[in-house]
Amino acid sequence: MHAHTGFETRHDARDVLRTHRHDGAYAALVIDGSHLEASADGPIDCVPGTLVLHPRWHAHGNRFGRLGAKVVNLDLGGDLAGDALRVLRVHDAKEALAVFTRAPHRLSELIDACHAAPTPTLQPWQHAFLRELERGECDIASLANAAGVSLAHASRTFVASHGMPPQLLRRELRCRRALRLLAGGLPLAEIAATSGFADQAHLTRTLRAATGTPPSRLRQQIKSVQDAAGATALQ
């Protein structure tokens, strides 16, 4: 159950929020206006009725439309937090707003009643580029050359669609993979190697810079969230 009701944020026309990271998981419901949210998940067209469930430590930027936007936010906990971004459309915006502002304990019901939002549209060459960014070791210039685009074009395109240039996007994708692996019992050195980091020290520096917390403590926090979700499910 959520202890607090939703809180509203308003954004002016054409406002831009540079890529930033939220420590906690939260839900965002677009009430009025619109904005484009750009992250490692790709571009999200956030129109009225869009419900975005952000996992903990999610990094994204926002570009607001000509009318600005009004958004209601609600902290997430337990099994609703999840470890991946979810983008949904509500069936009744007024009912959804009432849940956020007066009945947050009904959020799971609201989520179950939603339908999935359209998936982000990317240029065809971006899909293979993204796979190689996360898994491969090729330098960015070589990836651009293989995709048939210039390095400058690749950088501009990913800044527009994902809010960050390829090199930063590679780091973000690898951080996400490491965070997912921390939920298991693999040694940190193995997580570092599997996630594409040079060594455990490189993993530690990068995750500390991204989240403010070293991997060992992040693992404890992730386990606490999992235990809380399990306890909730048994009630």
Rank of each mutant, 00 (worst) to 15 (best):
V149M: 04
G77L: 05
L207A: 02
T50V: 10
A209C: 04
R217L: 15
E8P: 09
V16D: 04
T194G: 00
H127Y: 09
L36G: 06
A27P: 04
L97M: 11
L97Y: 07
G230W: 14
R217M: 14
R102W: 01
G49L: 11
A228D: 14
A128H: 05
L122N: 01
I111Y: 02
W57I: 00
L17A: 12
D12V: 05
R18V: 15
F197T: 00
V16C: 04
L29P: 09
L122K: 03
H35C: 11
E132K: 06
D227I: 00
A84T: 13
H58R: 08
R170F: 03
T5G: 10
V99Q: 10
A3C: 08
G49W: 03
L186N: 12
V47L: 13
R219Q: 14
M164P: 01
D75W: 06
L207E: 03
P43V: 03
A28P: 09
T157P: 05
L188V: 03
I191W: 05
S216P: 01
L107T: 05
V52S: 08
M1Q: 08
A117M: 06
T9V: 08
A25I: 12
E172L: 09
K70T: 15
G42V: 02
G78D: 10
T211M: 06
H54E: 01
E137R: 15
D15C: 01
H2R: 13
L74D: 11
H91R: 13
A193E: 14
H60Q: 03
A40H: 14
A144S: 06
S108C: 01
G230H: 15
Q123N: 07
L122V: 05
L130K: 03
D139Y: 01
S108F: 00
H115G: 00
L182T: 11
A147R: 04
L169K: 06
A144D: 10
R89Y: 00
L88W: 07
A228L: 04
H105Q: 10
L97N: 06
G230L: 15
D79P: 14
R135F: 13
A154V: 11
